[in-house]
Design a protein around this nucleic acid. Structure first.
Lengths: 207, 207
DNA sequence: GGTATAATTAAATCACGATTTGATTATTTT
DNA sequence: AAAATAATCAAATCGTGATTTAATTATACC
């Protein structure tokens, strides 16, 4: 039954990537089906052969695939029990940022287009669940470090959102061929957050 | 000539605020002129009396006003020469975050809708200039601290974007009436970045 | 080679939403 | 209370863009 797909025809993944590119340039609502189609040398109507449920479904799959992939990469680090909390967090941040710089279109979609998917009641719940799981990876690692006395006592949810906000933004401003490589940026940012968690030298709030 | 505006009629600022609210809920492209109008008890057509140039002009003014206001608040702190670099940065961060939590609709627009304005060639240049000036406020304060030997030697542009990314994200997730007040969040986050700049306890990169 | 299925297209359809237009009502000025 | 101007509305207009449809071409399977 399941016949081998033809070699030259486009597949779902091609289309998702193309869509992510167009979304980055114009945003979801600004992206015409014909724009996405053109990106893979098709006509607008042809997309409905691959995605019968249309434009919104394409967005949903871009975000789900994108989030799942980055989650898997980070999860692998979290599951590595040979790492101390500080090394682990450093590697988590590094992995996360490198992932974003390697696929900026999807990274940007995860920042800018999530809101759109959240308006869809069915997709909403599933997506929020995924996103919470992802966020959990960070809270978990940070909490472990605090419990182990390696990190100072921060407000874990806020610190997590601080990291994630900084990360998200990388997907927006990073451009290949810029002053720094993805690796250098990932290094610098993991240094920053590790320093922020260092238990010594905590400044006292003056406000 | 300039007659006093009628007491009950809506003014431009009402409309800009209303638009920001709708933009937050639906995004610029998802926001109908009738949605914005309804928010101030008008019909879609009436908006053209106040904004002859239409929807995009409304967005442009929302972003310009919003950015100008937050810039002014931060600038005032930067100009205070009685502050040491670390106190100054703390206060800058605090002020910035508090500003965002106090007007989340505009804050969200500054994150999500900037891309739209950048597609408009005329508005683009002016807006980028404003945004650069704003970013400069941070790079300047951070650099001063490094030069004074109070901060460790970070990559200033990256550190700035790290801070700004974290800030931007506050405007997205913060909700009034949540676990923490805007002040508490501002405190926590300024602690984080001040700690990150602390010259002692710098962890060595292991990647 | 013939048949079933997949991939694609060109040309409708169809709704929606920004903007325009031509009144109508309110307010201010004198 | 006119006259002028501002604010508003209801009802067109008008283009655009997602989706549908019916046909055409390509590929896989036997």
């Amino acid at each position: 039954m399941a016949r081998k797909p033809a070699e030259q025809s486009v597949n779902r993944l091609d289309i998702l990537l193309a869509a992510a590119n167009v979304f980055r340039r114009k945003g979801y609502h600004g992206a015409k089906m014909s724009d996405i189609a053109a990106e893979v040398d098709l006509t607008a109507g042809s997309l409905y052969h691959h995605f019968p449920d249309g434009k919104q479904q394409i967005l949903i799959e871009v975000l789900n695939e994108g989030l799942d992939q980055i989650t898997a990469e980070v999860q692998a680090v979290v599951d590595d029990n040979t790492l101390m909390p500080d090394e682990k967090l450093r590697k988590v941040i590094y992995t996360n940022i490198l992932g974003l710089t390697q696929n900026t279109s999807v990274a940007a979609a995860l920042v800018f287009e999530t809101r759109t998917i959240l308006e869809n009641p069915e997709a909403r719940k599933a997506y929020l669940k995924r996103r919470d799981s992802f966020e959990q990876l960070y809270t978990q690692v940070i909490q472990e470090g605090i419990d182990a006395g390696i990190f100072r006592q921060v407000d874990v949810p806020i610190f997590t959102k601080t990291i994630l906000g900084a990360h998200n933004w990388v997907g927006v401003w990073y451009r290949e061929g810029g002053r720094l490589t993805g690796e250098q940026i990932a290094d610098e940012m993991s240094n920053t957050f590790l320093a922020a968690l260092s238990p010594i030298g905590v400044p006292t709030a003056k406000n």
